[in-house]
Nucleic acid binder design. Structure first.
Lengths: 336, 336
DNA sequence: CTGAAAGCGCTTACAG
DNA sequence: CTGAAAGCGCTTACAG
């Protein structure tokens, strides 16, 4: 079923049908209704590829999970952001194309090429670590890109991130105000925009409050999984000296730490208090419920869609938007 | 940059370039290498839409979240399945097209039309509730479809689901063997393949063990969110009489129930034991850690990809595959 | 081993 | 208000 058939059935030209599909004004009302009815009756649907080929517009947004060790659909934080993004960009009429990371044309991991290949109109790039050069290529291309937690610098790029410095200072401040002075840090052994910022800011905040930075109380997990947080916490415990409070750069890591402490009969928050970051769903149900710095996933995803849309359509000047984090007090950080 | 330019640069015909791209055998090695080098140098990438238009193959798999109240990217269980699916289907060379549910051509929610529109080669359909007729249309079309937790009956469809009857009997059996006799049920107020099966099987299992089914101990949440499980549990508590154990059809609901009980100083498992279903990550960190019936998300997602691939390529006879669930014992169900 | 040409299903100036 | 025709960038018999 194609446009030609419809034209024939209606006794009009292909051009006329095309104009009706695309809502051109200069079509007789009677003709329009007649053609519309026929299309409806036979369930005609224009071919996307033909349209894309003719117009260079695909109505598709590419989603790329950047980095060697990308989070894909496995990190609850990014999934939530993406969920909000999908909802909003859907309202604006776009569908989403998830590039598989596994395989591609002649084995090359070339995002820009893939975007051209599918003629996507814009991209959302989700942060990962060890970001490949091909992401930079995409970033600096003419394809509008919106980054989540990844600093994009291209002329047609913008990015969103929580205020990561503030996240750390929030945590330290809350510890301080709750009477904690001996504060440790559970970080991650990978070079990421986000985690690096949080660690630097953590130290600055410690300094600001005149608190001692004790490197014995710093421990690092291998990746973003809860299991790795567990391992990292066990390493810290094994060292013998424990801080009274720990800031974990991510809820997932905090959960792992919680499990390690439970195993070692270390009571939270009585022996060691802990604050995470993200406000994953599971924070409400953990033992104890996790005090955390909330990132507004809903807002970030929605804003990303809106900004990308503007960049695609009105050549809006790309910007960076920093979203405010928020302290959510639960049970894992009492008072010292 | 198109095939014509490459042909001109290499001094060969467009047809020859096309054959090289598609790895035809009947091309001179020298020619081939020369053209390949040029494509590489200029970073040429064939246009997907032109290729699709010419071949009717898009290398795209559509993902549809069925149902009025679909789970989209918000239900951790389906996200995990999808994650595994994406990884495997990516290895097989496909990218994923997520249809936005929000809006479409002339406001119609017609999945089949959308699939034709994009010429997707196959679809994965994720269960939701109040499934629209348009999903049935897609199911009974010639497009290969693989369902997750949704019974597909079309000639080119297959589906995967955990053995939901067994899930319930596992739970009841474990309760029974742990000494519990007064068992309640936390279900969901929506007509879904999965939840209906679990409820029916729950009652059958209760009968099998000669246990009393007390309707006072049945309570239903409005949807799949933890918050709704919380509300449902509060309703049950308000009725005054509590069972000694509860089977929640979903971990998310169980988490909500956990919170409600904590608020009412009901100890788990001392006062009321609970078993969930899914084995979400959060089960490990909840208070207490949740005993659950695990669905093998990894396996289901991977199998779905493999089956869909076979259906697309070798016209494999569609099948239904039932995946075995597995009891995971943690702390929420001790001994009575 | 290589190429000319028709065709895939649309859109878009342009002419009337 | 409507239509003829070129063009988008590929693939694929078919001919040589």
């Amino acid at each position: 079923m194609n446009i030609k058939t419809i034209a024939k059935m209606a006794g009009v030209s292909v051009a006329t049908v095309s104009k009706i599909i695309n809502n051109y004004a200069d079509i007789g009302e009677e003709t329009k209704q007649r053609v519309l009815k026929i299309m409806n009756d036979v369930g005609y649907m224009p071919s996307s590829s033909a349209k894309t080929l003719a117009t260079k517009k695909s109505n598709l947004i590419g989603v790329v999970f950047a980095g060697q060790l990308n989070s894909d659909l496995s990190h609850p934080y990014f999934v939530s952001v993406l969920d909000a993004f999908k909802r909003q960009i859907g309202l604006l009429g776009y569908d989403l194309l998830f590039f598989s990371n596994e395989k591609f044309f002649r084995e090359k991991e070339d995002y820009l090429a893939r975007c051209r290949h599918f003629q996507v109109e814009g991209c959302i790039i989700i942060a990962g670590d060890q970001v490949e050069p091909s992401v930079n290529l995409l970033d600096s291309s003419d394809i509008p890109c919106i980054g989540i937690d990844i600093k994009l610098t291209g002329n047609n790029s913008a990015y969103l991130t929580s205020d990561n410095a503030k996240i750390s200072s929030c945590a330290v401040e809350h510890f301080y105000m709750s009477g904690y002075r001996d504060i440790g840090f559970l970080g991650i052994n990978r070079v990421t925009e986000v985690t690096t910022t949080r660690e630097v800011a953590f130290k600055e905040a410690m300094n600001m409050f005149g608190l001692n930075i004790n490197s014995d109380w710093f421990t690092y997990s291998e990746d973003f999984e809860g299991e790795s947080g567990y391992q990292a916490m066990k390493k810290l415990i094994a060292r013998g000296s424990l801080p009274r409070a720990i800031f974990a750069v991510t809820d997932l890591l905090a959960f792992g730490a919680l499990r390690a402490m439970k195993e070692h009969q270390i009571r939270v928050p009585d022996d060691v208090a802990i604050i995470g970051c993200d406000d994953l769903l599971a924070c409400q149900y953990s033992d104890p419920a996790l005090t955390t710095i909330k990132q507004d996933k809903e807002k970030i995803g929605k804003l990303a869609a809106l900004m990308l849309y503007d960049m695609i359509n009105q050549q809006m000047d790309p910007k960076v938007i920093i979203v405010e984090p928020e302290l959510v007090v639960r049970q894992s950080c009492g008072g010292a």
